[in-house]
């Protein structure tokens, strides 16, 4: 993956070549995984395409384009959000965390739990599932079955039982960390 250095301005939808220049729009500042970026293109463009096409952060996936499946889930100011229906204008001056930004010196406990419980099959929805789980555990450090079931992200491979186990394992390990 190309390592994009944060630039003062990242050109996106304005690369229209010989076509008439689009209306002048104010740059939208957004922080992604701790680095500042600016978006100069269409303010209606969903965040997902900024992440994928512009920043080449391809961990967040496209699945439905209408916020129904959750494959594109990221954290915006720490809360889970569907990036495929979040316009760039909606993330101005906000902090976005993607799956690529979850890892610090080591894997996030949720990521580690996903490996330990051998959750992934095709793997496509799992970044979104993990982001949703991180959000859940922030809100409910000791989630019950129904709290976990409230995660509405789709998995066509049917990994739900292992997702449940992984979330409980992560919850336990995060509790342990706090002691």
């Amino acid at each position: 993956m190309p390592d994009k250095t944060p630039a003062p301005s990242v050109d996106t939808a304005a690369e229209s070549g010989a076509r008439p220049a689009p209306k002048v729009q104010a740059s939208i500042p957004v922080t992604v995984n701790g680095k500042p970026y600016f978006h100069d293109g269409d303010p209606a463009m969903p965040l997902l395409w900024f992440l994928r096409d512009t920043l080449r952060l391809t961990g967040s996936k496209f699945g439905c384009g209408i916020g129904a499946c959750g494959a594109c889930t990221v954290l915006i100011d720490g809360k889970a959000a569907r990036s495929c229906v979040m316009p760039m204008s909606g993330v101005a001056e906000r902090k976005v965390t993607t799956i690529e930004g979850l890892e610090g010196d080591a894997l996030h406990p949720v990521q580690q739990a996903w490996i330990d419980e051998d959750v992934a099959q095709c793997g496509y929805c799992q970044a979104g599932q993990i982001m949703a789980a991180v959000d859940l555990l922030k809100r409910k450090p000791k989630p019950g079955d129904d709290d976990i079931a409230a995660i509405g992200n789709l998995c066509r491979c049917g990994t739900y039982p292992r997702i449940r186990k992984a979330i409980l394992r992560a919850a336990e390990s995060m509790q342990g960390d706090k002691k």
Binding site: T58, E100, L102
Partner: peptide, 18 residues
């Protein structure tokens, strides 16, 4: 366990769309 699980959970796995 899945051989490339670490890539999957950190968003580094490349699918066709990526």
């Amino acid at each position: 366990k899945v051989a490339d699980a670490r890539d999957i959970v950190s968003g580094r796995s490349r699918f066709g769309i990526d």
